[in-house]
Design a protein around this nucleic acid. Structure first.
Lengths: 307, 307
DNA sequence: CTAGTTCATTCCATTTTGTCATGAATGATG
DNA sequence: CATCATTCATGACAAAATGGAATGAACTAG
């Protein structure tokens, strides 16, 4: 990072503001400076860069091509800097901010609905949830922990198992009754909702339960689990969905699990945290709470036996 | 963009450098300042933010959690700013820099090999090629023009047609002779190289030439055209590839077109430029040159008739 | 033609920044 | 243990930078 290539922030701000207004005078008003100060800042920036950013046309300023290019680039950087500074300043009032990296679906469907419980236990804790789809280096990213799935192999980190991912067959109660679905073979003759990104899911499930069929692929096709669960709720067919994704629907009765037969996807969810780093109290509390919630989720699996 | 949320650049640079070294003294060496100056800059930044970025532990500095978070965020912004400033400074020596947005494959395989010709015509022109996969707003992006394909519907821009995209059947001369390929039906009995992202290509081509076969999908599968063209050159099979992609191979004889039958993909390539903006001489010249090159490419299509 | 507007620039007072020196608290070595 | 070296913090001060006020040239509108 060479200082020669990072101009004074105030110069950049003056430039960006003048470019927005196409007027030094109006930029000065916005920035609570005089017109002369803005004029000078822009001139100094131009001298530093060796490029004219504005053409002065009569009593107007017009962006040059170079100016337009530069404006586009630095505007993004200034916005990022603003956001970062806002965030860290708001950090000042909360010594206990928990920074977590989570998978999107898990974060949305499992963690978010339960966070009220954690907030009750630790009311002063801030929470900063970011999305990360891949493992990362805890020394490079500002996280206290992560929730991830797959192999618990994560360099420099400790992984503690939460629960396995299992997909289960579900449908609405009305659909189940109308089609008199009693055992797995009954699913051969009803529409089965398909997920485009998991085309083999039903086929694998039928193999798992020992039912032979050539028509495992029949049924409407969707691209997201959220659409499939809605279609199932509205009696469109049977669906294979990860259990954690439909816990609320199972609890409310909008969906029912068809049989106590699930397909273990050979993957589990883990809480991962950096090895060797002292765990702050807020992180320790979150971890305890998370383990309890995961244990409850595993226990609730038995309590949700179908009729 | 509130000035309160954009600290002085020199403070940020001092912070980033100290965080990298975990030492004010070494940061000072790198920045050609004294240790005292760096210490003060970081202290001022902390005072401004109201957050401690470093803990001073004995004769060491250790990033706080807030410091680590902030470091991660502003590092990206500083890097973007550096790149932008470098770029606009290099702009100074070339009043005629042509900023283009191109599709990756087209840019690599068609445009890049021809640019020497353009450079001969306009030796002082700089060229800045960026990749854009989707149409964009010319008022929002710093481009003089774009090369894109598909429907010539682009708001606020003029699209001028270059040439159609056509895929053609090709193979090595040796493969063609060994399998005695004379007409399209002969391709039914040979390996046909498949592109994973265009699984229906061969099937569409057989339909187009009126050949019936149930085995349109047979053949090794690749993920990129560049792999397919190499496999074809090494006698692994027949391939369906956009003509512009293999012009060099056809010209050198490493590949031959099997028949003068191509499949029009209902798509063409266009030079697109902003409507209403005065076209700089460098852009005007590029456009003329590009149209000539496209005309030549269309003419060369007839000159490449197969044996 | 007159009055108002806009960018450029000079002069100058105020603010900011970096150096130097010093000090407290280690940290290493013999 | 004593001595010397190292590192961050901070005060005093000189140099550099910044912004305001005023002025001027070139428009712009009525």
């Amino acid at each position: 990072m060479k200082r020669a290539f990072i101009p004074p922030a105030d110069s950049l701000i003056a430039f960006e503001c003048a470019a927005r207004h196409l007027s030094f005078t109006r930029a000065a008003e916005e920035l609570h400076l005089t017109q002369g100060a803005v004029s000078k800042q822009v001139r100094q920036l131009e001298d530093r860069l060796g490029v004219e950013l504005f053409r002065r046309v009569r009593q107007r300023i017009v962006l040059t091509d170079a100016g337009r290019l530069y404006l586009h680039d630095i505007r993004g950087a200034l916005e990022n800097m603003t956001a970062a500074t806002r965030q860290v300043m708001s950090y000042a009032g909360s010594a206990d901010v928990l920074n977590l990296a989570v998978l999107p679906t898990f974060g949305t469907r499992w963690l978010a609905p339960r966070l009220a419980g954690f907030q009750k236990r630790f009311p002063d804790a801030g929470l900063n949830l970011s999305v990360r789809l891949q493992p990362f280096d805890f020394d490079e990213e500002p996280f206290d922990g992560a929730i991830h799935h797959g192999d618990p192999v994560w360099a420099g980190a400790i992984a503690e198992r939460l629960f396995d991912e299992e997909v289960i067959p579900v449908a609405s109660r009305a659909f189940r009754d109308r089609h008199d679905i009693r055992d797995p073979a009954d699913l051969v003759r009803v529409p089965r909702l398909q997920l485009a990104t998991r085309p083999l899911a039903w086929r694998q499930w039928f193999e798992h339960v020992g039912v032979e069929t050539d028509a495992a692929f029949q049924g409407a096709r969707f691209e997201q689990f959220v659409m499939i669960s809605e279609a199932a709720i509205h009696n469109m067919g049977a669906a294979l969905i990860p259990r954690f994704f439909v816990e609320a629907e199972l609890a409310s009765g909008r969906l029912v699990q068809l049989f106590d037969i699930s397909l273990d996807q050979n993957t589990a969810y883990y809480f991962v945290y950096p090895e060797g780093r002292t765990m702050r109290p807020v992180v320790k509390t979150f971890r305890q709470w998370l383990m309890e919630e995961a244990r409850t989720a595993r226990t609730n699996r038995e309590a949700m036996l179908p009729r």
